[in-house]
Design a binder for these strands. Structure first.
Lengths: 151, 151
DNA sequence: CTATTTACATAGTTCGCCTATGCATGTTCG
DNA sequence: CGAACATGCATAGGCGAACTATGTAAATAG
């Protein structure tokens, strides 16, 4: 970090790095829930399917920023768990539609419950203002994550 | 998420889950910097060594929440890059001290620079209040990450 | 119709995590 | 003092998570 002059750009650089580090650490510690061996990406895929309904593998690829073969492999594993189903896309003979199953929704809910159980008590220790800060920060992180510049 | 009653606990559960998801997505998108193939954990280890000086493998294990063999392997790879050195700990014949090299500090700086380059413009588009929100959120995430409950 | 693009599966590789195990050193206690 | 136990880390093996490369089939463009 070049801290020669305290311009806004430099301050934002520092904030950017701090944010990446903090998010990374938090993700590592909060996201790995004992007893749940699948990765953050897997849970994010399930959540995306829950929110949006059936999606193509290529759609998931774009949203999750991993390569198509990685996504194919993951979807195959999730299918093996009975958490998703795969069917041909009626609109395009090349494409596959991935759909969340009830079993998958249940598994996702259980992961969420387990993850929340570890974080919620920490949130309860914060002030109302700090909690609101984190709520807003989550929104901002999501928004930034969706920015085309981060593709 | 059981939204049957709007108690604070449930709201905090929801916030906890949103935070985990948002941090995970942001980490995936912001932390994977084109041209830099090492994982978040690797950069965090380098940053920790930079901040604290030479450390034992077991110290790094505790701080990063990964197993000792995983850390041994990572340190070996980092050593192979010339980013860290390993030497016997004079205080304990079993232990190894890992030390950041100048090359490692340079590599870390380059990663930071590259990572910041992609996020900083997004920060510049936010209001001053939202930026302050993210600064505070980073602090809170770090604090929560350090909580013994998340071990 | 041909050429090109798109969608996804397969193959191979490396990294990132894990558990299990083994060796060496350090500590405690009878 | 020596045995039992604890600690620190390296190695081995396994699987998931990521990648690039490649191939097949379907869709699109000219």
């Amino acid at each position: 970090m070049t801290a020669t002059h305290g311009s806004a750009g430099d301050r934002n650089d520092r904030t950017a790095v701090d944010l990446i580090v903090a998010a990374s650490r938090f993700t590592r510690r909060a996201g790995r829930v004992p007893g749940f061996t699948y990765s953050s990406t897997a849970w994010r895929v399930l959540a995306e399917l829950e929110q949006r309904g059936a999606m193509r593998i290529s759609d998931l690829v774009h949203l999750q920023r991993i390569t198509q073969p990685t996504m194919t492999a993951l979807v195959q594993r999730l299918e093996g768990e009975g958490w998703v189903t795969r069917e041909p896309d009626p609109d395009d003979g090349r494409a596959t539609l991935v759909r969340l199953t009830e079993l998958g929704a249940t598994a996702l809910g259980e992961y969420r419950q387990a993850a929340a159980t570890r974080i919620t008590p920490l949130l309860a220790e914060l002030t109302e203002f700090d909690r609101a800060t984190l709520v807003r920060a989550a929104e901002l992180l999501e928004r930034m994550s969706d920015d085309p510049a981060l593709s």
